[in-house]
């Protein structure tokens, strides 16, 4: 009752502002700190600031001048189309292998149902983080140096990428499950594996399917450049034409990549909608 009748102890400020004194000082201070850091970074990195703004205007000019009439005949060449199919196959296999490998890792790295919170939880977390931390192009270079050029290296690199990507999303999904069934199973004496299969999987089945489809979509995007570093697929054509300065062909290849990524995005969006409806 007292709270309702209490009058404000501080007088109302004459001009209203969104942030009062101490808060506004912290806010201003952190903003200033970020700004100073950014300016110092630009100085440290030797960035020519007029060039930075000139580059944006220049970009349009460069694209128009160098890449403009894209050599569309080149991308309808059967040899190029075969590498497009290769890219599709690589992304599909990489996504499948990655999703299957990431399910146990996600189980270990979800804190609420992890079979062993002391040992397996940090191990699973570390596995997922290190797969995610290393960019897919670095994975490609590493696998190419071990397995040689070709699609096997590309598939392996995409698998590592998908383990990181899907593992994080899966473990987030598992950590958000309803704990009721889990507790019930535990109380009835189920072991961690039984808890996972009978209490967690039925709750996350649909979400997992959606994430798996999304993983393929992202893997396809990554697969378009895997070939750039020797992993097979259309990236190889991109690299060859970039190095031969065949800019019109490069423009056509980039356009074809955009078109295919759009198609992949459309397909994955449609499939996810179907899966959600089938729930």
């Amino acid at each position: 009752m007292t709270e309702l009748t209490k009058t404000p102890s501080t007088p109302v400020a004459e001009t209203w502002s969104r942030y009062r004194f101490p808060g506004s000082l912290y806010r201003f201070g952190s903003l200033l700190g970020v700004l100073v850091f950014l300016v110092y970074s630009l100085h440290f990195l030797n960035v020519d600031i007029p060039l930075l703004f000139g580059a944006l205007g220049g970009l349009v000019g460069v694209v128009a001048e160098r890449y403009y009439p894209p050599d569309l005949a080149y991308v309808t060449d059967p040899g190029y189309l075969a590498t497009v199919v290769d890219t599709l196959q690589m992304s599909f296999l990489g996504a499948i292998a990655g999703v299957f490998l990431s399910i146990p890792l996600a189980w270990f790295s979800a804190f609420n149902v992890s079979p062993n919170q002391r040992l397996l939880f940090p191990l699973g977390r570390f596995g997922v983080i290190s797969c995610r931390a290393i960019h897919e192009t670095i994975w490609t270079i590493l696998f190419v140096s071990i397995l040689g050029f070709g699609m096997l290296a590309g598939v392996s690199a995409l698998t590592m990428f998908c383990v990181g990507f899907a593992g994080k999303l899966f473990s987030d999904e598992i950590e958000a499950v309803d704990m009721g069934p889990v507790d019930a199973m535990r109380a009835a004496g189920a072991n961690p594996f039984q808890v996972f299969v009978f209490a967690v999987v039925p709750q996350v089945r649909v979400a997992f399917t959606g994430i798996a489809i999304y993983t393929w979509d992202v893997a396809f995007r990554a697969a378009t450049v895997v070939g750039f570093f020797g992993g097979g697929g259309m990236g190889w054509y991109l690299k060859r034409n970039v190095q031969q300065l065949e800019n019109l062909r490069v423009g056509a290849i980039i356009l074809s990549i955009i078109a295919m990524v759009l198609i992949a995005e459309f397909i994955s969006g449609w499939l996810r909608k179907v899966v959600n409806r089938a729930k």
Binding site: A55, L59, V62, F228, V261
Partner: peptide, 21 residues
């Protein structure tokens, strides 16, 4: 989103030259 960062970097390297920019 559909153009990979490596491809963006290729375009910008050819537009503004080597370096951090």
């Amino acid at each position: 989103r559909s153009v990979h960062e490596i491809v963006w970097a290729l375009i910008f390297v050819s537009a503004v030259g080597l370096g951090a920019l």
